[in-house]
Design a binder for these strands. Structure first.
Lengths: 306, 306
DNA sequence: TGGAACACGTGACTTG
DNA sequence: CAAGTCACGTGTTCCA
C-alpha cells in the first residue's frame, strides 16, 4: 500500500461541511472571534481581528475571491512561536472512506483544488505545507493592512500596491526632509530611512560604480583559522557592505580592524574561523568573498588575481 | 485519450537543458536586458532591470535557492500588458515521449517538484499558471529591493521585513510631522500616508529583533573627534548592521576595531570625525546612533541610559 | 534525518 | 467559453 495515512480529509461524509467553513459570510460570525481569545501575544493578529471584526464580509474590492475570508477566519498568526499546529488532526472528521482517491476528479465536493494525484509521499508534509501557505497568506494580508490604497485583492496586486506605496513614501520623506532642513536634529533620519534614494538599493544596482575593492589577501593560519585583508576605496557604505558580505558567508568573525592606509584607501583585517569544511583553501575562500561582495554591490578590482 | 497536449516538457531528451536555463549564472547576461527595451511605463520594473544588469548573479544571501536566479533572469515584469507569454512553446524541445506519465514518480530529472500526478486537465492552464507564479515571485523581489534590512531570503521573511519596515516608517513619519507642526502643507500627506496611525500599528509585533546592543559609550576627544564604543550581542548580522548604522550618519569613520569581550559579547570601537556641527554633544550623537541602529533592526537595550 | 521552503501541475472557481 | 486566480497535495532540495 502506497499511502500510509488518510490524506483526503476534505472528502469526509459531508463534503459541504468543510466548504461551509470556508464560504461562511456572516453566520457563526463570532466563532473565530472567540477563537481569538485563545491566542496570546496580540501582534498583527490583533490587527486582522479588529479589522475583520468591524467588517462582517472582510473584503474591499467589488467581488473578491471567497478564500480570503477562509484564510482570515480559520487561522491565527504567530503560533509559530508556540509551536502549536493549526491543522493537527483534521482527517478524524469522518474517518471511513479511506480510499477516496479512487473516484478522483469527479468527486465534486471538498475544497477548491482537491486533486487526487499520485498519493502516498507527503502525508506529513501535507499539514506543514498547509500551515506554511496560511502563514504566507496571513503575512501578505498583514502587509496589506499597512498600505492605504489597495486597488485589488489580488495577491500580486497587493505586492504591487505595497511596492508603489513604499516608493511613494521614500519620495515623500525625501521632500519632507528637504523642507525640514532647518531642523538639524532630524537630519539623521533621512539617510537611513530612504534606501531607494541614496541608500542600499542605489549602489547595489548602480552599474557605474566599480572597483571598490582593490585587493583581497588571505592567509591560512591553520585549517580552521584564516586572516582576510581587504583593501578598499574610502567611500560611503563600502565598509559596511564588506562587513555584510563577510558575515553572509556564515563564518565566525573575530577581531576585525579597519583603518586607513592612505588618503584614499582603507584596510580591513579580519580573523575568521571556519567550522568544518577541512579542505577550504585560500583561493576558494577568496572566491566566496568576491562573490559575496558582489552581491552587496562591491566590485573587486581584479577578479582573476590571487 | 485524456490529455491533449504535451505536458511534461521537462522530460525532454536532455533533462538538464531546462535546468541549466534556471541555473545559469552569467551567460546570456544581456539577453533580457534588450528585452527590457520593449517594456513600457518604467515603474518598479526599471528598478529590477537596472539592478540585475549590474550583477550577473543577482543573489544576495549566502546560498539562496537557485530558482530565484531563474525567476530573475528568465522573465520580465509587466509583460501582462503586451500580452506576450513567457513560456509559449516550451514542449517543443524534444517532443517524442508523449506518455511520460507512465513511469511517473521515478523520473528523477526535471525541475524541483515535477510531479506526474493524474495528467490531462490543465495543459493550457499550465503555462498561464507558471507565468502567474513568476509574476508573483518577481513582484515579491521588487518589493524586497525597497526594504533596507532583509533578514532572510524567505518568501515570508521578505513580507515580514517589509511589514516591519513599513510600520517603522509610519512611526517615523508620525514623529516627523509632530516636529513639523508649523508646515501645514505636509499635514495632509500623512492622513493618507499612514492608514493605521493610531489604531493598529502601535502595538504591532516586533518579536524578532530584541536587544542586540547592550551599551553605547561615547567619548568626545575634541570638537570634531569622537570615540564610539558599542557592546553588542554576538549574533549574526549584528556587526554589519551596526556598521551600516554608523555609516548612515554620514560621518567619517576611521580606525574601527571589533573584537570579542567574552563568549557572548563583542565590542566595537570607532573613531568618527564630524565635519561641522560644532555643538554636537555626546548625548545627541548617541541619540542619532540609537535611532540609526533601530532603522537597521538593531535594538538598544537601555534607551534612557547615558 | 526530519523539518522547512519551494516550485510544480491540477481542479475548482470567478469574471470578462 | 476563455482567461485568470487560488488552494491544494506532492516531490525535491537544503540545512541544522
Amino acid at each position: 500500500q502506497r499511502h500510509t495515512c488518510q490524506t483526503w480529509y476534505d472528502l469526509s461524509p459531508t463534503p459541504a461541511h468543510l466548504r461551509s467553513l470556508f464560504m461562511e459570510s456572516d453566520n457563526n460570525g463570532g466563532f473565530w472571534a472567540s477563537d481569538l481569545a485563545f491566542a496570546d501575544d496580540g501582534a498583527q493578529r490583533h490587527q486582522s481581528s479588529s479589522f475583520f471584526h468591524g467588517h462582517p464580509s472582510p473584503i474591499f474590492s467589488p467581488m473578491p475571491p471567497p478564500e480570503y475570508s477562509a484564510i482570515l477566519d480559520s487561522l491565527e498568526m504567530d503560533w509559530a512561536e508556540n509551536g502549536m499546529e493549526l491543522w493537527p488532526e483534521e482527517p478524524q472528521g469522518g474517518g471511513d472512506n479511506g480510499d477516496a482517491e479512487q473516484n478522483g476528479e469527479e468527486s465534486g465536493g471538498g475544497k477548491r483544488g482537491a486533486v487526487p494525484a499520485a498519493g502516498g509521499g507527503g502525508c506529513k508534509n501535507l499539514l506543514t505545507e498547509r500551515n506554511r501557505r496560511m502563514r504566507l497568506n496571513q503575512q501578505l494580508l498583514a502587509l496589506r493592512l499597512l498600505v492605504p490604497c489597495i486597488s485589488k485583492m489580488d495577491k500580486r496586486s497587493i505586492l504591487i500596491d505595497a511596492t508603489e506605496y513604499l516608493q511613494g513614501i521614500h519620495k515623500k520623506i525625501e521632500t519632507m526632509e528637504k523642507e525640514m532642513s532647518a531642523g538639524a536634529s532630524i537630519t539623521c533620519l533621512n539617510s537611513n530611512l530612504s534606501p531607494s534614494s541614496e541608500g542600499v538599493s542605489q549602489d547595489v544596482h548602480e552599474p557605474t560604480i566599480s572597483h571598490n575593492i582593490f585587493e583581497i589577501d588571505i592567509e591560512k593560519l591553520n585549517d580552521r583559522l584564516f586572516t582576510v585583508k581587504v583593501v578598499f576605496k574610502r567611500a560611503k557604505r563600502v565598509q559596511a557592505q564588506i562587513q555584510r558580505a563577510l558575515e553572509s558567508l556564515g563564518f565566525d568573525i573575530s577581531n576585525t580592524m579597519i583603518h586607513p592606509t592612505d588618503q584614499h584607501m582603507m584596510l580591513s583585517t579580519s580573523f575568521i574561523h571556519v567550522k568544518k569544511q577541512k579542505h577550504l583553501t585560500e583561493d576558494s575562500l577568496k572566491k566566496q568573498i568576491v562573490e559575496a561582495a558582489l552581491n552587496y554591490g562591491i566590485v573587486v578590482d581584479n577578479d582573476g588575481q590571487i
